[in-house]
Every structure is written in structure tokens, then in C-alpha cells.
């Protein structure tokens, strides 16, 4: 059940303060089903904080987040239930080091979605196959490369059958030669029609895979539109300066 305006996510005038630091300065945006939104911007511009407000890992100081017909910033909303519908992948993978790849995926299926072990096992193996790592099912995170760990983390999030996937600089901690395998996985996911919000520094990926680009600076959305068009013809001065630095 989408929001009244037909969007999957709607942010309304989001402000976030960390102590005295004003990190998000009144952001409003809507994300439609099937959008692949990439958020770019200089470090400290609030990209990750914005992403993390979407599943309320960061609670907005002010403003509302609507997801799939519910206002999730309302204190009466069952956030734990909402979070099962929003997958998130982190820069630092955050796999559970004491559990094997398969157990990492099964944990929330069993404990949160209350699936029995057999069902969870089946889903876990399917998702591992999906990211091409079914042969690593019994490996522990410490035995896997960074790229493999990140793909497991993606599989763990996908196993919950989320309606939305959030990616928080997922390739920033990877060696250059491992970046591609993770980006390929994400591209396949986009092609399958998953709604995705991606904070990234990979400009090529933003242009080729993203269907929409948001450029943030100093806690505000500066540009928002078609990535190819925006990058070809950057209008805003700050966006132009940013592009000339990273391209």
C-alpha cells in the first residue's frame, strides 16, 4: 500500500541535529516504486544520515518519514516490523562474525519472521545463489574477502523480501579489484526492478545504473533529476565543482 501520493517513501522537511551540528536542513523528497536513486555529494554533506533516516536508524530531529502508507516517524508505528521491509547494506558490512554466511542470513528469518529452520535454510541458500556465493554457505566472515562479505550482506538483506533497499557507501571499504563484483550484484538487482537508494562515490555507476540522481551539499538537496542529463549539463555551481573534482 503506497503513500497517498503514490510514492513508496516520502520525506517531509527532515531536519537532523547532532548536538549543535545541523546535519540535515529541511529535506523533502519522494521515491517511487522502481526508482534507483543515487545520492552523491561531498563528505559531510549529510548523505549517509539522510539514507539512515529512511529506516529510522537515525531518528529525524524534526520532520516526517512516510513509508508504504505509514508514517514511520510516528512513535506508535512498530519500527521493527517496518524495518523488515527495508533492507540496508553498510559500508563496513556488519556481518555477524560468530555466524557463518548461511547463519547470518537465517538468523532474522527465524527470529524475526518466525520461519522454521527448513524454510529459512531454503531461502538462505536461494539468496546465496542469487549473489553467486552458495559455495561459501558455511564460511565465516573472517574467511571471506571484502567483496564476498558485502555480497553476503546484500543477500542477508534481500532474504527478508524488502520493498526497498538502502546502500550506504557499500564499496568504499573495498579494494579496487573487489568493487566490481559488488556493483554488478547491485546492477542486477536494479534490473530486476528493486527500489533502491544508494549513497555512493561511484560516479559511473550513478550515471549508468541510477534512474535518478540527488546531489547534496551542506545538508540540503541541491540537484535532483535524471543522472545523465544532470551530469552532461550541470547547472548548479557547487555541483559543477564537485563533478570536476571526482570525474
Amino acid at each position: 500500500m503506497p503513500n497517498e501520493d503514490g510514492s513508496l517513501v516520502r520525506l517531509e522537511n527532515i531536519h537532523k541535529w547532532f548536538g549543535n551540528v545541523h546535519v540535515l536542513k529541511g529535506i523533502s523528497a519522494s521515491i517511487q516504486q522502481g526508482n534507483v536513486v543515487t545520492i552523491i555529494g561531498p563528505s559531510g554533506s549529510g548523505k549517509s544520515t539522510l539514507l539512515r533516516t529512511i529506516n529510522c536508524l537515525e531518528e529525524p530531529t524534526e520532520g516526517q518519514v512516510h513509508f508504504d502508507g505509514r508514517e514511520i516517524t510516528d512513535i506508535r508505528t512498530d519500527l521493527n516490523q517496518v524495518r523488515t521491509e527495508i533492507g540496508i547494506v553498510f559500508q563496513a558490512f556488519n556481518l555477524f562474525p560468530h555466524k557463518s554466511a548461511k547463519e547470518n542470513i537465517k538468523l532474522a528469518l527465524e527470529k524475526v519472521l518466525k520461519k522454521n529452520s527448513g524454510e529459512a535454510e531454503e531461502i538462505a541458500m536461494k539468496e546465496l545463489q542469487h549473489v553467486g556465493l552458495d559455495h561459501k554457505a558455511d564460511s565465516y566472515p573472517s574467511q571471506l574477502s571484502g567483496g564476498q562479505q558485502q555480497r553476503i550482506a546484500i543477500a542477508r538483506a534481500l532474504a527478508m523480501k524488502p520493498k526497498l533497499m538502502l546502500f550506504d557507501e557499500v564499496t568504499s571499504a573495498l579494494d579496487p579489484e573487489l568493487v566490481k563484483e559488488v556493483l554488478d550484484t547491485m546492477q542486477r538487482l536494479a534490473e530486476e526492478g528493486m527500489t533502491m537508494v544508494i549513497v555512493t562515490h561511484e560516479m559511473g555507476f550513478a550515471r549508468e545504473v541510477g534512474t535518478r540522481l540527488i546531489f547534496m551539499d551542506d545538508g540540503k538537496v541541491v540537484e535532483d533529476g535524471d543522472p545523465q542529463q544532470l551530469m552532461r549539463d550541470p547547472k548548479d555551481e557547487r555541483f559543477r565543482a564537485f563533478l570536476s573534482h571526482v570525474l
Partner: peptide, 15 residues
């Protein structure tokens, strides 16, 4: 234990 561990668990819907 790193903060990220709790975040990962909470973001999967765990209490």
C-alpha cells in the same frame, strides 16, 4: 562490540 553489529541486527527488524 562495534555499533554496526547492533545496527545490522536492528535494521533486520530485531528488537
Amino acid at each position: 562490540i562495534e555499533r554496526g553489529q547492533v545496527e545490522a541486527a536492528r535494521s533486520l527488524g530485531m528488537t
